[in-house]
Amino acid sequence: MNASVSILAEIPEDLHESLQGYLDNHPEWDQDRVFSAALSLFLLQNSQTTTPDATRSYRRAARVYLDTLFKHAV
């Protein structure tokens, strides 16, 4: 099952303009895909897998990151 949670976030205007430029040049990507990839990569880079629960969370974040990164446009 692939569940989604909607997030409303304010971002700096410069970041929004950069994101819009990226999306304009990469039509196979959308805003949701970019945010999923960015957030999962952040969690991977900043995780501490010292407990079984943390290890499971790391693996789930890794799965989301890889699925998002290598998702093919349909």
Results as ranks from 00 to 15, higher is better:
1 M>S: 08
2 N>F: 05
3 A>H: 06
4 S>W: 10
5 V>P: 00
6 S>D: 02
8 L>T: 11
9 A>S: 13
9 A>I: 15
10 E>A: 13
10 E>N: 11
11 I>A: 11
12 P>G: 10
13 E>D: 09
14 D>W: 04
14 D>V: 06
14 D>P: 01
15 L>S: 05
15 L>D: 05
15 L>F: 14
16 H>V: 04
16 H>E: 05
16 H>P: 02
16 H>F: 14
18 S>F: 07
18 S>D: 08
18 S>T: 05
19 L>Q: 03
20 Q>A: 14
21 G>E: 02
22 Y>G: 00
23 L>P: 04
24 D>A: 14
25 N>A: 15
25 N>H: 12
25 N>T: 14
28 E>G: 13
28 E>V: 07
28 E>C: 11
28 E>I: 04
29 W>H: 02
29 W>R: 00
30 D>T: 11
30 D>V: 14
31 Q>V: 12
31 Q>A: 11
32 D>N: 14
33 R>M: 07
34 V>L: 09
35 F>N: 03
35 F>Q: 03
35 F>H: 03
36 S>F: 01
37 A>H: 01
37 A>V: 14
38 A>H: 06
38 A>E: 01
39 L>R: 10
39 L>Y: 13
39 L>E: 04
40 S>G: 08
40 S>E: 02
41 L>H: 09
41 L>S: 08
41 L>Q: 12
42 F>A: 02
42 F>C: 02
43 L>R: 10
43 L>H: 09
44 L>W: 02
45 Q>A: 10
46 N>A: 09
46 N>G: 07
46 N>S: 13
47 S>C: 13
47 S>R: 14
49 T>N: 10
50 T>L: 13
50 T>F: 12
51 T>P: 11
51 T>N: 12
51 T>G: 12
52 P>Y: 08
52 P>D: 06
52 P>G: 08
54 A>E: 07
54 A>V: 01
54 A>I: 00
55 T>R: 14
55 T>L: 13
55 T>I: 12
56 R>V: 04
57 S>M: 10
57 S>N: 11
58 Y>S: 01
58 Y>I: 00
59 R>Q: 11
61 A>Q: 05
61 A>F: 12
61 A>L: 01
62 A>E: 08
62 A>G: 09
63 R>M: 05
65 Y>K: 00
65 Y>F: 15
66 L>P: 00
66 L>Q: 06
67 D>S: 09
67 D>Y: 04
68 T>H: 04
69 L>H: 06
71 K>F: 00
71 K>Q: 11
72 H>C: 04
73 A>K: 15
73 A>S: 10
74 V>A: 15
74 V>F: 07
74 V>N: 09
